[in-house]
Design a protein around this nucleic acid. Structure first.
Lengths: 142, 142
DNA sequence: GTAGGACCTAGAGTCCGGTCTAGGTCAATG
DNA sequence: CATTGACCTAGACCGGACTCTAGGTCCTAC
């Protein structure tokens, strides 16, 4: 048991470049990899799993720094759970916030697309308000 | 009619810093502002609306460059609708992709939080797999 | 008339998150 | 034994998106 993987293989499996993996190690997102006699890094399946998690978390906007902090808490082990929860809960809030922004943006984009499509179909080419972009969202404050 | 606003006021209303507004102008995201005799920029309500849209689009990950391109199409006016649609549709796809990533991340985060909460409640402190972070998601390929 | 505040320009600086380079080691292969 | 390929290190470099600085102009109000 205990299959091990070279850095290139890990890169291929996770989609993280070899450079980025080393960078993550330097930054402390992933622990110092074990080395083969000769100095090459080797990784276990668990290392890959952790890296996969990192990809997901980074992809959702968790900064390298926060990710380091999280890993440090995990490394320190017992007694850090509530800090981990705090960190993750904070991040969950940020994700939810981003989701709302994305929803809003998607609506705006779809609305604009619809307007342009109408224009193309001639349905609405009554030559609208000059100066406008012809695709206002109309849902502003003020 | 035709109330006009100074750059500071626009900044306050849109949440975009004065610096960033000038930066956006240099980059071409917003057109060269009209000037008061004396050189100060003034903005109309429509300018503010456009800037608000820009905020939403930027916030959803549309790059400054793409936003410039979009504004350029709008400026060129009639005949650019299908290009605008293409650009926006492409962006809509990116937003949807980001949404999926965020959903995935949110699930992971919530799962981890739940696991740590269980640990805190003593429900699960059977001292788990050493080396694990105690909050694996278990939904990996491989 | 001088202080304060809002604004101006050009351009330098910052932060983030990688990415790339140069120069080198090591193991297997033809 | 020369080449190839995967890997190594330290550190320079990059693109994106601002942000800030320095030095200056106006206008209003005391």
């Amino acid at each position: 048991m205990g299959v091990r993987y070279g850095i290139g293989e890990v890169a291929a499996r996770t989609g993280v470049s070899v450079h980025a993996i080393r960078f993550y190690e330097r930054e402390g997102i992933i622990g110092p990899a074990e080395r083969l006699p000769g100095g090459n890094r080797t990784y276990s399946a668990e290392d890959i799993d952790w890296l996969d998690h990192c990809v997901v978390l980074r992809g959702s906007g968790l900064s390298v720094k926060e990710l380091c902090r999280y890993r440090e808490l995990v490394r320190r082990g017992d007694g850090t759970e509530s800090e981990r929860i705090a960190l993750l809960a904070e991040h969950a809030r940020r994700i939810e916030h981003r989701q709302r922004l994305l929803d809003q943006a998607l609506q705006l984009v779809r609305h604009k697309i619809a307007v342009y499509e109408d224009v193309l179909e001639g349905t609405a080419n009554i030559r609208c308000i000059p100066g406008g972009d012809g695709a206002g969202a109309g849902d502003r404050r003020r």
